[in-house]
Design a protein around this nucleic acid. Sequence first.
DNA 1: GACAGGCATAAAGATTTCGTAAAGACGGTC
DNA 2: GACCGTCTTTACGAAATCTTTATGCCTGTC
Lengths: 230, 230
Amino acid sequence: MQQSGHLILIIEDEQPIRRFLRASLTSEGYRLNEAASGDEGLRVAASYPPDLVILDLGLPDIDGQEVLRRLREWLTAPIIVLTARDQEQQKITALDAGADDYVTKPFAIGELLARMRTAIRHAQHVASETPTVRIGDLRFDLTARLVFKREEIVHFTPLEYKLLATMLKNSGKVLTHHFLLREVWGPEDSQETHYLRVFVASLRRKLEDDPARPRYVLTEPGVGYRFAAE
Amino acid sequence: MQQSGHLILIIEDEQPIRRFLRASLTSEGYRLNEAASGDEGLRVAASYPPDLVILDLGLPDIDGQEVLRRLREWLTAPIIVLTARDQEQQKITALDAGADDYVTKPFAIGELLARMRTAIRHAQHVASETPTVRIGDLRFDLTARLVFKREEIVHFTPLEYKLLATMLKNSGKVLTHHFLLREVWGPEDSQETHYLRVFVASLRRKLEDDPARPRYVLTEPGVGYRFAAE
DNA sequence: GACAGGCATAAAGATTTCGTAAAGACGGTC
DNA sequence: GACCGTCTTTACGAAATCTTTATGCCTGTC
């Protein structure tokens, strides 16, 4: 009655449950879309992107888990799955595949509504900011471990990324060869400065416009390297 | 009730514990963010960088240790991990991976609060500890090994910097040739006073407005040099 | 005013460090 | 077992730094 009119997609094959949810959610002020099968759910989600999905894992056509995976390929809205009480393993797999929360059938409508509110609130928060660090024309998404240059994704090997992350975490400071080697390669190889030289070279090849005249990965001759502060 | 309103992130899958922590911490005046899974924790941490993280190592989705590692790739705030009593090895691994402290479940809230206070106090201490020294229009950032003149970065070679740092550490005092040579070049070359002349010249060229009429690096004829006190 | 000693500065070797490409070794995958 | 991506190792030209040498300046003394 008071709600913001968020669009909820219900993917549920049992008609009684759908009817029950329809009554409860519309009276809370949500807008609704309903799908009676996984296939239909995917189509509807694509046509009318929902703010939240309620997905029953026990669907007749394709596996509920499969629907979940296919949704998560592009949908960032929260997904709450409904599971039968005796399907413990299912909900773990579902959370793994990107579900945000679960409710066990039979459920109290109050609990479901509460979880919906939390999920939507969270989604809005998380969506409001892309948690990224920007330096020049570079953008770092720390949680996803992605690096963009002029909004184009740049690929790094594990060690390259570790070195870059270490420099970024201490950006602005001069970092000695010894420190970087110890952080990235471990205490054993802290003398092998030639490792650094070849990896710094690859970082530059990928990050800099002119690797010979670096803007980000700067060398401090005789001491180490420094990542440009901003 | 008295607190500074530090933002705490709780990553904990068990709802009862979350509820318990929520009650205790908000009544202490902390602000809270909660995440019920590691994945969510990482997202929330990135969106709302916390002042402290409480991380349960026994999470359902990704391994708690993995969450810890991924957080530490970029987050500098203190992390306190919660471990089960019989998981001795876990907490050692966690501390190794960058956790700041641990609390064993079941825990007394008083102990947790005390450890939180310590961790936050320590973190602030370290953060505020940017030991920059200002002398005239110069600024020395010792941890970053950077020197600025009128907020413009000035580059020094290893020996130049070592000499400058030695003079700065003893600024105001008259330092003999012998002393400076021994500190910078070692006991072997403590007679080679011409080294000093050459390097003092480069320091002046980089630091002084008029190298012929130095303001910072002063000559004490027949004795040595002195770095201006302030 | 000539001279000596200490100092400042520039510039030419000598030495070390750095950047880069490319080859070899390694590990996982199909 | 061949392939791919990654890491390690090697080699060499380029760059930066350190050492050495040379020259000139300033000050004070005789």
